[in-house]
Design a protein around this nucleic acid. Structure first.
Lengths: 138, 138
DNA sequence: CATCTAAATGCGGATAATTCGCATTAATAT
DNA sequence: ATATTAATGCGAATTATCCGCATTTAGATG
């Protein structure tokens, strides 16, 4: 586990738990999802605590907060993950991490100093695509 | 004005108003911003009506709904606008439409059928960048 | 033009995600 | 071991967004 407590944060059971969950997560998770996941590992925490910790981690740059296409709700991922980009299936609404980034070099401009970017691909996952083909929609 | 009512929607004063506002908008707008803008042109409408119309337009593909970095609130833009990508200043939180798209060709993959994408650049706008330089932060 | 019908809006209440405040508890520096 | 500061438990408050129903309006039809 990355040592989040090295940045002036206390190491607590609750923070460990959330960090763990995000580290094992395959996909971006909502606060609610994190909450129920935590309960499975019998770490009971209030939602307000979860939000506080997530905000804190986000502020420290450990976690990234996203609103992915079609979900009007915040999802969180560890920044340490290689993939900070996601593909979202408009049919089943699943989210898939992307391994590479198709945004090439961004040339510097006098108008905006770019420090980073956020990218989502939108479309159909393999399963939903096959279904659509079968149904003759494509 | 694009003829939104050609897709089976009735043409109403309220819809005209929202369409107009979005058409004149330089930046993505929240429902609240649209609401107060509407009041300036003395078209009074309830927020629920605005949300309904925006959802409707979004469903018809006339409007795009976004949650831009750092704003935990939905913003709306006309899809007809050339620029569907935005740069967001992390300092003043202003949003700037981008004129070009640095996402190049996305090669087809067997895992995900891409129909579109959403991109945000994050960084500092010209003014905030200059301020940071002056303050010695860069 | 008058009338009719489906669709849109006014209006307010409900919902649900997120944040706030404060008392209590836990973590770490001494 | 103790003191100090930060974190959490707990629930209430906030706020964006959505829902339901009565009323009104747009546009089709005679």
């Amino acid at each position: 586990m990355k040592e989040y407590w090295k940045s002036g944060l206390k190491k607590t059971r609750q923070r460990d738990c959330i960090f763990n969950i995000l580290q094992n997560a395959k996909n971006p998770m909502t606060a609610i999802e994190i909450h129920s996941e935590a309960q499975k590992s019998s770490v009971n925490m209030w939602l307000s605590t979860i939000y506080r910790i997530l905000d804190l981690f986000t502020g420290k740059g450990l976690v990234e907060k996203n609103f992915l296409v079609g979900d009007d709700i915040a999802t969180y991922v560890l920044c340490s993950d290689m993939h900070s980009h996601f593909a979202v299936c408009v049919s089943c609404r699943k989210r898939f991490p992307m391994e590479y980034c198709p945004v090439g070099h961004v040339e510097p401009s006098g108008d905006f100093y770019v420090t980073g970017h956020k990218l989502e691909m939108v479309g159909y996952c393999k399963d939903c695509y096959i279904d659509r083909v079968k149904e003759g929609n494509i």
